[in-house]
């Protein structure tokens, strides 16, 4: 039968063996965990490096796209600003030109209105009446004119049989309105009407003096 001392040493040995097995197990577990953690960290690192590597071209692409879009937008805005400014400047120029043309026109009309009715003027009236009778196709006409030209027209009408001067005067710069006696046809050959018809050409002529449309 073992004595108490032997029993104690057996217990000690058993405890020591148990401790050592536990320690081995713990260290084994620790080692395994460490390995797995390290492997996980490594794979995570590799994965993130790969993701980073993969995203570089995508980011570069995105960066380029943002830059290109920005450039496009900037170009668009630049075009808008330049376009609007160009149009505004052009419109101001047009208005200034129109003002100048109007002034020339008014001056010219004033000169025509105040022109001397003697000399060649009666020839002009004669031509105007001839033109009108030719276009209307009849010599049975009534001629109207303004108060200023009445005398000249009256004396010219003596050369046109069938023509008579209307007692009513009209408001115009000069010239005549010729009407067939039946009232069906009228031909406006006043200076005003002739100017009106040629206005686009006269405007062009005046504008060319300002260096426009040459």
């Amino acid at each position: 039968m073992p004595n108490s001392q032997t029993l104690k040493s057996i217990t000690d040995l058993r405890d020591s063996l148990a401790n050592s097995a536990l320690e081995t197990t713990i260290s084994k577990i620790l080692e395994q965990t460490e390995k797995s953690v390290i492997s996980n960290v490594e794979s995570a690192l590799n994965e993130s490096l790969k993701t980073l590597d993969d995203s570089v071209p995508k980011l570069e692409q995105e960066y380029d796209k943002i830059l290109a879009d920005g450039k496009k937008e900037a170009d668009k805005i630049e075009k808008q600003i330049i376009g609007s400014a160009d149009i505004e400047a052009r419109n101001k120029q047009l208005m200034a030109l129109e003002d100048a043309v109007d002034k020339v026109f008014s001056k010219a009309l004033e000169q025509i209105a105040n022109a001397d009715r003697s000399g060649d003027y009666s020839n002009l009236i004669k031509t105007m009446i001839e033109e009108a009778t030719q276009i209307l196709g009849t010599s049975e006409i009534t001629v109207s004119t303004n108060a200023k030209d009445k005398d000249v027209v009256q004396s010219t009408l003596s050369q046109f049989s069938g023509a008579e001067l209307s007692s009513d005067t009209i408001d115009c710069l000069g010239g005549v309105i010729v009407k067939s006696k039946d009232g069906a046809m009228t031909f406006d050959n006043t200076i005003d009407a002739r100017i009106e018809r040629l206005k686009p050409l006269i405007r062009k002529e005046i504008a060319s003096k300002f260096g426009v449309g040459e």
């Binding site: 276009i135 209307l136 406006d188 002739r194 018809r197 040629l198």
Partner: peptide, 12 residues
Amino acid sequence: MTAEGGVQYSKI
């Protein structure tokens, strides 16, 4: 474009 205008008719 000429200075000569056209005839105005009033019989509609």
